[in-house]
Design a protein around this nucleic acid. Sequence first.
DNA 1: TCCTTATTGAGAATCATTTGCAACAAGCTT
DNA 2: AAGCTTGTTGCAAATGATTCTCAATAAGGA
Lengths: 146, 146
Amino acid sequence: MKDFESKFKGFLAEKKLKLTRSRSLILEAVFAMQGHFDAEMLYDRLKDESVSMATVYRTLPLLMEAGLIRLAIRMEGRDRFERTFGHPQHVHWICENCQAVLESGLGSLKSMLHKEAKALKFGIDQINITVGGLCWKCRINENDSQ
Amino acid sequence: MKDFESKFKGFLAEKKLKLTRSRSLILEAVFAMQGHFDAEMLYDRLKDESVSMATVYRTLPLLMEAGLIRLAIRMEGRDRFERTFGHPQHVHWICENCQAVLESGLGSLKSMLHKEAKALKFGIDQINITVGGLCWKCRINENDSQ
DNA sequence: TCCTTATTGAGAATCATTTGCAACAAGCTT
DNA sequence: AAGCTTGTTGCAAATGATTCTCAATAAGGA
């Protein structure tokens, strides 16, 4: 059994929840996904297995609580997630023109926030840093596009 | 005329848009608001002046484009805004238990992001840093609440 | 295998946000 | 100040993501 599977199983057991066929399939789909994904993308991959949209939506919060995925960004009115396993937190750079999403490591931003958290006596659960603007390609074409 | 009013007026003129009664009222309401606000809160203050919800929703993006407000956070399924005039960017600390929202200055986080932006050739428009977790009060009562 | 309790799929329900449209109002032109 | 062009508004209907209801079903411990 893969790491993320046993982690999810452990989480469910602790909460007295059951590891069902649908949940297993969703977890599998999540880890088959590279990059960001939303509920609909998961559903598209699973509807043939007769997993319902409702269950996808019900499972996503569980995966977040279990620390297996995190809300990456919200784009075009939808929540987009990313898995946490092997994906350390990072900054999301969103181009407001072409919607491209770049990523870069947190670097020392992380320690600075933790330092501030200590001052505020705040217990950090998740950090979300998003920067909106123009990617280099769109900056070059800035004149044309308008 | 106040600073923000002339700034909005200038923005509208540049875009060949009109400064209407509804837009003026909304702008006024925004600057009468302390802290965060959402579309509904503005509407509540303006419905007696016969400003419609649709117009509130249509005006918010204009105010953002004009650089008068920014999207602060998304909470409980709604977008919450804050004005930018006299409110430098800051970090939002959201307590996942009591929903309290703390703020702290960006400090050197800002320059670090701009440095990284230069490396990525990314033109920064807006920075959004949100940290989820537990505020000190909820950390103390952590045992009780569960 | 039995039994208790969580879970599921399907579809209806929510709820924030958008949009279509005919009536209206800015603001430029004369 | 009146006319005209074009953007704007309120209203209601539409959208679209997410949530909920509920009867049927499946985990998993006994």
